[in-house]
Structures are given as structure tokens and as C-alpha cells.
Design a protein around this nucleic acid. Structure first.
Lengths: 353, 353
DNA sequence: GTGAAAGCGCTAACAC
DNA sequence: GTGTTAGCGCTTTCAC
């Protein structure tokens, strides 16, 4: 792993005298390892002259202190774990645009704060110990959980004994873990209200109602329907992976849009991805949107602007979510106790409702 | 932090199950730390009885060996770095669907092989040292670079002194770094040939030709055009972020599709994302696809199936790419020297050409 | 302002 | 099979 052939780099300023650690550098600089450590860490108690010498030597030899050793000694790693539990729908959750976009913003935000990001995807079913294992690995200072999936209970358990955790997801009355997320119930209400305002009377919810976030969206839609004296919102369960979802959607549409008395005339899709798929199926069936059926999505992903017609949806502010997650986690790391952060959803009216 | 009160240990044998390290556990099990280490590492030289006792004790106390300490000692971390250089287009590259999907597959694949994934996004312009810094951080055993961006030279430099690196990108005659990627030039040729077969005579390439991958796609299209005796492929540069790209596309279309003599009648978009955007703009202008203009994308992302009409495109096998990256990297870690892996693109004909 | 020394938690010789 | 010991590379008192 180290130098395969010692004399392979004759033209480089580091022959076999490679600087492998702080002690090597100390020898070169004629000081003690302690001083090098202090200089490179930017501590104040080092002579400017000495520091400059050490820094230039380090640069010249491309030397950087080993973060593992440093981490071990200081009992902190400078790494934040980000874990995506693939609870309810093993496959596609992963490349799910929403989570991936959130991940991108998290990476930016953590970098800005000087932390590295360790990514782990886990399948809770196969491994009930997923969260503990990560936390106790000794590799991370704290953890951000992206999505509660169906693991609410397990997360709650862990939260009691471990402060350095923040979760993206839905907020529930009296829960123990610190969560950042959109007010899904309100979002669901906004969506349904829009469908109703656009003329829908028989509303369906497209998507799995198992995960907390989705359940809350469903409940919000139900609130709105009830308040208007409309029939209950009809759940149309699907998986998240495009292939299966498309099939399932086609079947649902065949059953519930056949034009008889209580046909569905408004669909609230749990995510924009599902909504886009639904739009494709509706088009295949020759059903006009929004004339025959109104459709509202959730997330406001880029795709929402590109469907035909463009999708009316409920926006989640992903960037703000990422900032919130990181901010709260760092404050917890610093010993503060923090409240959960609930972000307001925003209805974006385009052309499907 | 370190308790210099010697009797701190004997006085509190183990309250609240605080097993902090292998030594604590050893005391509990009545064996030496070395034995615990061996037992937990699954080495063969431990009495079955002893091993079981240690394992059950570890489970009971939720103890896991500290990976940083272990890593430090063994001089390997079990972590692979994944770095996304944001060279040419700082912003949207990130949440670019293609890279994010690749990242998801990488995460799966590395997990299967027992490695953790450390993610870093870097802006090379701000920090010329980005790759060295990561490699020498001591936190990773090897690195996968996602996309050469405009950093080909820098990657080449580093590759000479560091074996444990594999790069996603374009393969170039005689390059030093090990690369996995689609044959972009061939892909470009396939795209252009399809446009021509569909009746196009004046072909444009939509996208920045700076990054290597894109340059190769452009070159491939050019090959095809030249071979058929058609005029040179017209480059229509854009950024990658949807907002700017949409604007730029609109301008390009205004100039080159005005219907006069040499109007463009075939567009090869550097990515599906760009193609989808382009389709939206074409629709807005009332230009029929594929009748007035033929369009081919690249990647075969999920969105390609959902555009209206569905997008003809060139598929990259992302999962195979991820497997290849991981496989090659692990083989290099094991000391093998490896060839680059060039994957075949596949034309997927749908309805835009 | 700098050096010496004691570990952080773990593993791998080397004994026995 | 198991205990003992010597570090991995770094930081941080504590002296001076």
C-alpha cells in the first residue's frame, strides 16, 4: 500500500525520506512532535517563525496529520454520519430524488461547517441494530437520519441515550427525538383544498400510507375532505420504485376512474415522482388533466415543472431543511438542547389542479 | 478527560453498563483484552466457549470495537472516499440525477463489500489540493472520483503516486489513471446516427463540450456526421443547472430553428436532463418532435420514459458502472494492477427520434 | 514557547 | 488458547 517501489519517484522531492507522520516532520524542522502538532493545528502558543517553517515544510512534503489518530486522541472525529433507512420499500427509496437532493445539500452544509460526511444506507429489516451500530462505531461524532421510514420506535429508543442525533421526518406530539421536517399534515391539507377548489369531489391519495410522512399527508387531506363534507379520501397504495408503481397506478386507475357514479376526480400523490408517473398513465388512458381529473403532487422537485401539463404541487424547502438539520445537530454537539424544527409547506399552483 | 485518580476504576465496577472499550469487556469476561479483540474479530484461535461468552457480553452491553482505534492500529480504515469534483459548473452538478444515482449504487456496492463510504464534494477552483488532501487525510483506504470534470490533469498527477484510486469518466489513449465509464464517443455516434436515420441533416449538440465525457460525445456525433457527408455538428453550449439551461436553450432555439435555410433539424443533448428541458422549450415554441426536429438524449434516466413524447436516448448502465468502480478499486487495494473498464452504450429508441 | 511523556482504543507479535 | 507487551500517529498536560 505504501510505496510499491522505493525509488519509483526519483524526480519528486520526497525520496525514501517520505514524511509519514508528525515525528518525521518534527525531525526535519528540528523541533519536537508536540510543537509540530500545535503549529499545524493553528494553536496560538507557537513562535511565528517556527510555525512558518513547519507549515512550509508540511506543504513541501504534502504532509497532513492523520485524522484517525487525531480523532482517537481527541475523542472526536470531525465526521457526521448520514444514514438512510430503507425500511418500507427497499429498492428505489435510494435514488429517490428528494432524498438525494437533500443529501446533496447536507454535503454542502456539512462541508461549510468543516465536517466530513459518512454515508450509510441500511435495510432495517435485515439488521435491527442499524442505528446503534453506526453510532457506536466510533467513526462519527453525530448522526443525521434521513427519513423515519417505518423505524419511528427504534429511533425513539436510541434518542433517549444519545443526544447527537437529528432526524428528517415528521413531527409527532411528544416525541423524544429531534426532528426537522415539513408540516406534512398541513401540506396534505393544502393539496386537498386545492383539488377541491379545482372542482374535485371524490379525492384519492396515491401512495403508501405506512411511512409517517405519508401518513400525515394523507391525514391532512382527510381533514380537508371532512371539513368540506366530502367522502373519505381513498387510499391507493403503491410502491415507490417506478416500475412497480406504474403498474399499480394503472390498476388503480382502471378500477376507480371507470366513469361510474363515485369515480375519483381528484388525486393527491404522495410525491412528485408518483404524480409524474400517474400523469403518464392518465395520458395513456386518454383522461384529461385537470378537466377529468385534478392532480397535485408533493415536494416540488425539478420534474414538477417539466411534466405535461406542469404539475401543481406542495413545495418542501429542501435547502432550508438541510441547513436546519446541520444547524441543530451542531448545536446538540455543543451541548445545547434543541427543539424540533417544523418547516411550512407551500402550495405551488401550476396546471394540473 | 483522563482520570488521574487511580481508584476511579475499582470503586465503580460497572454502573449503568458502561462498557467503553475492549478492556472493560475483558474484565467482565475475565479474560485479557487481546482475547476479546480476537474473539470479536472472528479469528480462529479462540476457544468456542470463551468466544461465545465474550460475544454475548458484547451484545448485552451494546459494545462495538472502536473503528478509529482499530483503523489506526491496522493501518486501514475500512472506508472508501467518494469525491465529486464540481469543476466546470459549480452548482447543479451535485443533484444531477446521473451522479446521484451512481452514488446510490456505489453505496450499495461498497456496503456489500463491507466498506463504509465517505462523501466529499469539492470545488477544485477554490482548492487545488482537493484530491491529495482527501487521500492523505488518513481516513480512507481508497478513493473513487465521480467525474473527471475539468480536472483530468490533476487526477493524472495524483494517479502516479497513488494506486488506490478509480475514476468514473472518459477513457483516453495512454492515460495513467484507472477509469470506468461508458464509451462516450461510441454513444455520441449512435445518437447522431439515429438522428440521421430519422431524417436529420443539420445536427446540433446541446451542452458544454468542456468536460471530457461531453467532449467525447460531441466528437462521436461529429464522426457520424462527417461519415455521412453532413455539415459539422453545431455546438450549443449550456450550463447544467436547469434554470440557466432553460434560458440558454430558448436562446439557442430562437437563433437556430428560425426556419431559414440551414436550420437545425436534429439535436443531440449531452444528458437526458438537458433533453427534457429542451423538449419543454420546443413545446413552448410549438415545434413538433420528431417531425420538425429530432431529439436524442444521453443516460436513460427515469425521466426519459416520462417526457412527452418519450425520449430516445443512449443508455449508460449505471449499476454496472458502480460495480466496476468498486470491483476495480478493491482489486487495486489488494495489489493487483487493473485495466480501465469501458462499458458499451446502448441506443434506446423511443419517440423523439 | 517548547520538550517530554502519557495515553486515546485497539491489534499483533511473541511468549508460555 | 490466552496473556503480555509494544506500539499505530496524534494531542495535551506538565515542566522548564
Amino acid at each position: 500500500m505504501s510505496e510499491d517501489t522505493p525509488e519509483a519517484r526519483p524526480d519528486r522531492p520526497m525520496r525514501e525520506g517520505a514524511v509519514r507522520n508528525i515525528t518525521d516532520l518534527a525531525r526535519l524542522a528540528g523541533v519536537s512532535p508536540g510543537t509540530v502538532s500545535r503549529a499545524l493545528a493553528g494553536k496560538s502558543l507557537v513562535n511565528t517563525k517556527t510555525r512558518e517553517k513547519i507549515e512550509s515544510l508540511a506543504r513541501e512534503h504534502g504532509f497532513r496529520p492523520n485524522q484517525m489518530a487525531s480523532g482517537l486522541r481527541r475523542q472526536k472525529t470531525g465526521v457526521i454520519g448520514v444514514v438512510i433507512p430503507l425500511g418500507h420499500d427497499t429498492r428505489q427509496q435510494v435514488s429517490d430524488s428528494f432524498f438525494m437532493t437533500l443529501l446533496g445539500h447536507l454535503a454542502d452544509e456539512l462541508t461549510r461547517k468543516g465536517y466530513d460526511l459518512m454515508l450509510r444506507r441500511v435495510v432495517p429489516g435485515e439488521d435491527s441494530d442499524w442505528l446503534d451500530r453506526f453510532i457506536r462505531s466510533g467513526m462519527i461524532d453525530g448522526v443525521i437520519v434521513i427519513g423515519q421510514s417505518d423505524q419511528f420506535e427504534r429511533i425513539e429508543e436510541v434518542a433517549d441515550g444519545f443526544r447527537a442525533m437529528v432526524v428528517w421526518g415528521n413531527h409527532q406530539q411528544g416525541q423524544h427525538h429531534c426532528v426537522v421536517g415539513t408540516d406534512n399534515r398541513l401540506g396534505g391539507r393544502l393539496a386537498a383544498e386545492r383539488l377541491i377548489a379545482a372542482g374535485a369531489r371524490r379525492i384519492a391519495f396515491l401512495g403508501d400510507t405506512g411511512p409517517m410522512e405519508f401518513a400525515a399527508r394523507f391525514a391532512g387531506a382527510q381533514d380537508a375532505a371532512a371539513r368540506m363534507g366530502l367522502p373519505d379520501v381513498l387510499p391507493l397504495p403503491t410502491h415507490l420504485s417506478p416500475d412497480r408503481a406504474s403498474e399499480e397506478i394503472a390498476q388503480h386507475l382502471a378500477v376507480h376512474l371507470s366513469g361510474h357514479g363515485d369515480a375519483v376526480d381528484g388525486i393527491f400523490a404522495a410525491t412528485d415522482t408518483l404524480a409524474a408517473l400517474c400523469l403518464t398513465e392518465l395520458r395513456a388512458l386518454g383522461i384529461a388533466v385537470p378537466d377529468d381529473v385534478r392532480l397535485v403532487g408533493f415536494d416540488d422537485l425539478p420534474i414538477a415543472r417539466q411534466t405535461v401539463p406542469p404539475l401543481t404541487t406542495v413545495r418542501q424547502d429542501i435547502a432550508a431543511g438541510a441547513r436546519g438539520l446541520v444547524d441543530l445537530l451542531l448545536r446538540r454537539l455543543a451541548g445545547e438542547s434543541t427543539e424540533s424544527l417544523v418547516l411550512p409547506p407551500e402550495l405551488v399552483v401550476r396546471e394540473t389542479a
